[in-house]
Design a protein around this nucleic acid. Structure first.
Lengths: 336, 336
DNA sequence: TTGTAAGCGTTATCAG
DNA sequence: CTGATAACGCTTACAA
């Protein structure tokens, strides 16, 4: 900072261009009906003065801020550590960059609930994107009653049919992964599911069950893990300890699969020879394990764009589906 | 979104509380001189109505937004990949959470320069924090002429004595790391410096040179690397290829040191027996290498808080130092 | 301590 | 197509 910079106003532009403020406003807002001559004069004046519209005045008068919030219901450390955000946020940002909207990032741990509520409802933003990856909070669901809100991922534990969600099609992904096992001749299948407090984990287990039911196959070989490799290894041990023979495993995440794979190696069991494995996530674990994992890739960045697009349409008052599911892609490698 | 929600205004609060709008405003802004009775009445009305002040109106009238921008002059991928941001951003966020300010995150790749400029100068923010870790841009330095701006890290290539910078004291850190080598009896020292287009790398090399000069020791054993381990290994090979005996090495980053260490192991050279090493960064590389590295820890998160604090003081019109250097800490381990 | 009233810089309505 | 003129919701001297 240095010069106090005399901020030019719309009125000054109008004076210089020799038109009324209304006309300047029209030009600034790209209104269709303005004489080319007027447009030129105004733009020249804007250029000359270095005029930049005052956003506060603008939103006060128009009731729109052209800003949306991206709410991360996590603490900052987790925000940086979680690859999910690293993929989704760019998608959101990228889509927004094609529009006139700006993004405000709100990390929950920095704002207590009340501060967050106040911020979101103070007319600071036109809408909010909630990335409910791990935690879910009734608070955000309620928020959707007072503000256009789109959820990335499905919040659990609340029946809220009126909210808008953009999610990965976890159930279909799991079904595909399970079907691949069947198509390769496997008949007795096990699964290591994710924590059943999280929607995606519930959906994935559901997808597995659905396929087995359709084929009339027993679906009793289920163990649970959090998403980690270590917990995947533990679950694998429990599965083996049951003493039941099985020839196929669907692991709810690549990290889980990676952990399970380690145990299988320990026990001298061949993959895919004796047990075939499919999973979800095309990350380092899936790519570098040996054998490399047949897995399902999630369109995470695209989901980010879709979330943003959905919110903008909601803001524009469009009638949109309450649930948007993003299709996934099967990636076949050596584990099956 | 559901109910159109009739937004309560300050005027409605005033009416309900039986006072004037000024009084409500005073209460909302915690003005000292208001009767306890009035405060109570107003707060009750606010509570009952669920009143939340309109930010746009507020900043239009007060000329303050209570929002600051955190500008990342990088693309989104790098933002998530770089541990520096993972440490600084929480510091900024944490400090801000103790104030009434909010943060808007601006990642350069999403806004072209013009869009960024317009956003920053449209009265959307009261000031900006520029985290110039890798790139530097004349653009941001110029920005400082029209808006309160604080730089985290020193921009290179521009002589701009009037800007405000909060930086790690890289020169002192390097000097300390070099001195440690000397104190342990090492006499012939080498260094692997970082890219000399970056201020911190320049400062570190400068710190090393300064100590050697003071001791009258030759400072010709210099090789360069980018910050990576691989480039550190290359530089180490070049150093050894010179055929000059040396017994101490200062590596400009732990990753560089890690790469160099690998080469030393390959060649069967003992650390610290034959060559002692000191470096900067207390990260995974420094902690898990063998031997563990004697290094300098940077107060990165604290720097984040300090940057934010400095900006708010600048906004408040305080007269503050143009350069703030954050002191570092020596961590002695087994590499020297 | 409290109220009055004049803006803050745009947008929006409505004539012309 | 253009120009008055009234909001938008709040802050802030200035008076009382």
């Amino acid at each position: 900072m240095a010069t106090p910079a005399p901020t030019p106003t719309l009125e000054m532009v109008a004076a210089l261009a020799g038109v009324s403020r209304s006309t300047v406003s029209r030009v600034v807002n790209a209104s269709p009906s303005v004489t080319p001559a007027a447009v030129a004069a105004v733009n020249a004046a804007i250029e000359q003065l270095g005029y930049v519209p005052n956003q506060a005045a603008r939103s006060l008068a128009s009731h729109r801020t052209r800003t949306i919030a991206l709410v991360i219901p996590e603490n900052t450390a987790r925000f940086f550590a979680d690859p999910y955000y690293a993929a989704v946020v760019p998608g959101v940002a990228q889509y927004l960059s094609t529009t006139e909207y700006s993004l405000t990032l709100l990390i929950a741990s920095e704002h207590d609930e009340d501060k967050m509520r106040r911020y979101l409802l103070s007319g600071n933003v036109d809408g909010a994107l909630i990335l409910s990856h791990h935690n879910n909070d009734r608070f955000y669901v309620q928020l959707a009653h007072s503000l256009p809100v789109v959820f990335g991922g499905r919040p659990t534990g609340f029946d809220a049919p009126d909210i808008h969600i953009v999610d990965i099609d976890n159930k279909a992904a799991a079904a595909t992964a399970t079907r691949v096992l069947l198509e390769h001749g496997r008949r007795r299948l096990a699964t290591i599911a994710g924590p059943q407090t999280i929607a995606s984990a519930i959906d994935r287990l559901g997808g597995w069950r659905e396929i087995l039911a359709a084929e009339g196959i027993q679906d009793d070989l289920v163990e649970y893990a959090d998403w980690s490799a270590a917990s995947g290894a533990d679950a694998m041990r429990s599965l083996l300890a049951r003493g039941v023979d099985f020839d196929g495993l669907f692991a709810a995440s690549a990290q889980i699969a990676f952990g399970a794979l380690g145990v299988l190696h320990e026990r001298g069991l061949d993959v895919p020879g004796q047990i075939a494995i499919t999973t979800i996530d095309n990350d380092q674990y899936a790519q570098t394990s040996s054998p490399a994992l047949t897995t399902i890739e999630q369109p995470t960045t695209t989901q980010g764009s879709m979330i943003a697009e959905t919110l903008l349409r909601l803001i524009d008052g469009e009638e949109i589906d309450h649930l948007t599911l993003m299709p996934t892609t099967l990636i076949e490698r050596e584990s099956v």
